[in-house]
Amino acid sequence: MADTTAPLPAAAKRRRPMADLKKQPGFNQIAWGCIFILYAPIIVLIAFSFNDNRSVVLWTEFSFRWYVEAFGNEGIRKATIVSLEVAAVATVFSTIFATMAALATTRTQPFKGQTLAYAIINQPLMIPEIVTAVSTLAFFSLIKQLTGVNGIGYLMLAHTVFCIPFAYMPIRARLEDMNLTMEQAAADLYAPPLQVFRRVTLPLLMPGIVAGAMLAFVVSLDDVIITLLVAGPGETTLPIYILGQIRRGITPEINAVSTLLLGLSIAFVTLFFLLGRRRK
């Protein structure tokens, strides 16, 4: 790397000499290596989920066998339903709350305590998840002790909290992109504030809200640590179920379920990406 004046063979072949100046030796290789590191394990996992072999070591034959077995597994089915229920509730509430908060922080005059509001909204991102998890557990157990009320609501509430900042990000970004003149034009055309919101702000904000909801859903669906500590008996989500199975040993069924969960997240995030693209 010391001999920086000698161009790399690959760089020498570039058609545009100016682009060549941007290159740093070895950087391309590391970048490709980075992509490889990120994707290789996932690809191996996906490949083995289609492997018709219990040992999970050697490739034998392509098969949907483990998917069929996973679908037949009562535990997996139950965990999937719990996961979807929790994610759905957390997504709805966190998206509504995040939308309201984003409107407050972008559509009104700067106010005292704005920084504090930002800090509170982003708080779940700044504290290590394990700390949030144990303090939430401590808090909920205290309330359960005092009121005697149990149920899955606690888990949903905990998910709503950490989903809010994720939903908030794209919604706020969208609002900041949106020019105030649209709303002024509506007010100029006799629309009172509520009508401005309903007829102009909300429809224009919709892509941001959808993106925020998708992120919230994915984040809720993927959570392990907080769920692990907060979830009561019978509230096993899919990741918790998978964790339990992995602890017992590797089974091809888990590969299949993991691939499905992976596929779901990837589908959502890809959709999010494409939505963002169309907007430009």
Partner: peptide, 22 residues
Amino acid sequence: LFLITLPFWTNLLIRTYAMLLI
């Protein structure tokens, strides 16, 4: 950027498990 962030949005547990596999 999408390629880099996509794994981030997928389940950490599953990615760790995939790492374990290899």
